[in-house]
Amino acid sequence: MNGGPLVGVRGVHRRYGSGATAVHALRDVTFELAAGTMTALVGRSGSGKTTLLNIIGGLDRPDSGTVHVDGTDVTALDEDGLSLLRREKVSYVFQTFGLIPVLSAAENVGAPLRLARVPPVERERRVALLLDLVGLAAHAEQRPGELSGGQQQRVAIARALAASPRLLIADEPTGQLDAETGLSVMALLRGVVESEGVTALVSTHDPTMLALADRVIRINDGQLDEHPGIRSDGRLDEHPGTRSDGRLDEHPGMRSDGKLDGRANGRGDS
């Protein structure tokens, strides 16, 4: 992996509804993800995790701001472009697993490969490999309804890895699993990030999962609060995208008024 940012999120706002009942789910969110890392997105329920993940993956669009994934401006893509993005670069693991009920575990894992028109022999080889990787080689022909929650989520992880995406987005993948199963699923994710070289962004509200992540981003009421050490006086933090001298950093899409990320993220407070 080149170590440069795979994901760049700049000044993203997302509001649901309008007028007095409007909910500001994301307020001026800016951050980057380095390639090949596993990042945990932590926040209470309703803090905006799902909204943020959906926008990064192109399932939703921001009201303002931009999202770059692997050099592509996701916010500029049309539906077909987003479909292609999902087919080639971004995959998801959902809290509710999201498997296709009428397909076997193996066919679920193979579905992205079918969409990518991978030749059958190669497809079957990769499906077998992935099922083996998630420890479900013996359950290849079972339907999702015949698998436990933990098993289903493993199938979902294998499926998310099938087309060798650059970015794997997992939205509370352990949310419906018991603690022990959840931990093993997290450990599996951690492992595949290493073995498959994928970049992972995993939301959770379970603090015990954090130890497995390379980095933790905290979100609170739609604003990033990446490090507990950020200061209310606006002093710099060590965010990789900002510089300690307070000057503009080199990223496109950065605010041009010279204000700092920390300040910008905290705008809602002022």
Binding site: S83, R86, E88, P101, A111, L115
Partner: peptide
Amino acid sequence: PERWQTLTRLRTLGLRP
């Protein structure tokens, strides 16, 4: 409902509308 649930799931895998 079932049909479009499956289709939505396939859409997250990159199926075009």
